[in-house]
């Protein structure tokens, strides 16, 4: 099997590794690098569980080949907290019940952060649309949207 060397930044740390061209980014993260925070649920780009950021924007990591992110910056849920302090989104999800089984949560948090980076004061409708690519089977999304709006408020206060 042919393998290719790739080099990329993962949560601020440089990774150099070899992968088979057919390896998807989610497989690289979970199976080769042991970064299992990112979940793999549908393998068809439909559920958003594997959402990570690439080059500052979110993607479904099951729908991107690992070789395609050579030279880019990748962010996962493991990089969301800064040191011991949880990200305001993580705090808000805990305080507002934005998670239950937790399987969609890493992807949901990544989508929410992508939204708040682009739009620090989203409306409820904008928050709903921003997570339309993330399926949650537990919460009915109500408390996820609440959590995102609460985090946005906290983050605005901080600034």
């Amino acid at each position: 099997m042919n393998r290719m060397m790739i080099s990329f930044m993962l949560n601020g740390r440089r990774i150099e590794t070899s992968v088979a061209p057919k390896t998807t980014l989610v497989e690289l993260l979970r199976e080769h690098l042991g970064m299992t925070g990112t979940k793999h649920a549908c393998d068809s780009g439909a559920c958003g569980s594997c959402t990570v950021s690439v080059g500052g924007r979110t993607v479904n990591s099951c729908s991107v080949l690992a070789v395609q992110i050579d030279g880019m910056e990748v962010g996962t849920v493991e990089g969301l907290a800064e040191g011991p302090d949880l990200h305001p989104l993580q705090e808000a999800f805990l305080d507002h019940g934005g998670l239950q089984c937790g399987f969609c949560t890493p992807g949901m948090l990544m989508s929410a952060r992508d939204l708040l980076r682009r739009n620090p004061s989203p409306s409820a409708q904008e928050a709903r649309e921003a997570i339309a690519g993330n399926i949650c089977r537990c919460t009915g999304y109500v408390k996820i949207v609440e959590s995102i709006l609460a985090a946005a408020g906290k983050m605005r206060e901080k600034k």
């Binding site: 849920v77 969301l80 937790g102 949560t105 948090l109």
Partner: peptide
Amino acid sequence: RRVDGAAKVTGQ
């Protein structure tokens, strides 16, 4: 807060 919440929001 859920007792398993912190583990779930951090990917742990």
